[in-house]
């Protein structure tokens, strides 16, 4: 058992025994060695299910939305990206700070699940792309903190800037090539909405994509409706996406959704100044305010 797993179990037990929270949300081992899905722990004797390993990908903050109308408190483990998701939801008043106990975990970066499945257990596995791009591996907000802060600050300081070469490669194509590329990607979308449901930036009580009777989107699965879905989803998370990569990981059809999200992050930075979602909860969202001196291209 890793040091961190031990610490997780200890603190979870403590929180439950003291009654600081009714439930602790963490990760446990799944069906395969490269899966560490979410776990909900209500009883101190169940804490031994909790683990911390290279595959604790699921962003747990999203579950706090389920507890919005719930009386009691929940404790949740947060990596860097999960803490940004928490801030994001807090900023939208989707959750109440006092109802949540946050346990921060410094994150060394997780491993790529798909590669793990493909290459097997005893191979040299690459980090997940979202983790290579991540600028905030340390939790930004927490009540408890597990691990060595000093070491993590160093990690954060030496992080390389996010790599946008994948976005640039698409920008370099001709319009027709780009259209072809995206049509092929979204033609295989089955509109299961896993990408939406897993996303901490998607928290509307009624989503536009569930409004088929009203006619916002058609039920049919075809290029046109799927592209409507892709573009609308991307615009809806623009300025709110915390780059946790969960949408892309959740997608059963392996659609490179992060290529859309990263494009928007990049353009927002270029057009309206550097902005990272879920860092500063007082600040305003890029599309929720404006600057009189914004670039003018519409004269």
């Amino acid at each position: 058992m890793s040091e961190m797993t031990k610490k997780m179990q200890e603190i979870a037990r403590e929180i439950l025994v003291k009654g600081e929270a009714e439930v602790v949300i963490g990760w446990e081992k799944g069906t395969f060695w490269y899966l560490s899905p979410p776990a909900f722990i209500d009883k101190p004797e169940d804490v031994q299910r909790l683990v911390w390993d290279d595959f604790c990908h699921n962003n747990l903050s999203k579950y706090l939305v389920d507890l919005k109308n719930h009386e009691g408190k929940a404790a949740v483990f947060v990596k860097g990206c999960d803490s940004r998701a928490f801030n994001r939801l807090l900023q939208d008043k989707q959750i109440a700070r006092e109802k949540v106990v946050l346990i921060g975990i410094p994150c060394p970066g997780l491993l790529d699940q798909d590669k793990a499945k493909e290459l097997g257990k005893n191979s040299d596995l690459p980090k997940a792309q979202k983790c290579l791009d991540c600028q905030y591996p340390n939790p930004l907000v927490y009540d408890y903190y597990l691990g060595d802060k000093e070491a993590l600050n160093e990690v954060a300081a030496t992080k390389e800037a996010a790599d946008y070469s994948d976005v640039a490669a698409i920008e370099a194509m001709s319009p027709d090539e780009r259209y072809d590329f995206w049509t092929k990607q979204y033609d295989r979308c089955i509109r299961c909405y896993a990408c939406r449901n897993v996303c901490p930036a998607c928290s509307c009580r009624e989503c536009v994509f569930d409004q088929t009777r009203v006619g916002w989107i058609g039920k049919a699965n075809n290029s046109s409706e799927n592209q409507f879905f892709a573009l609308t989803r991307a615009m809806h998370v623009a300025g709110r996406c915390i780059e946790c990569g969960e949408c892309e990981r959740a997608c059963p059809m392996d659609i490179p959704i992060m290529l859309l999200n990263k494009k928007l992050v990049k353009d927002i930075n270029e057009l309206f100044g550097e902005y990272d979602a879920g860092i500063d909860i007082e600040g305003k969202l890029p599309l929720g305010h404006f600057d009189k001196n914004d670039p003018e291209e519409f004269m």
Partner: peptide
């Protein structure tokens, strides 16, 4: 219209990114 400006500066780039001619 200030919000419009932000929204469509961004959307214009997104549309181009998925292949719509500017």
């Amino acid at each position: 219209n200030y919000f419009t400006r932000r929204r469509y500066l961004l959307m214009q780039r997104l549309l181009q990114y998925v292949g719509v001619d500017p």
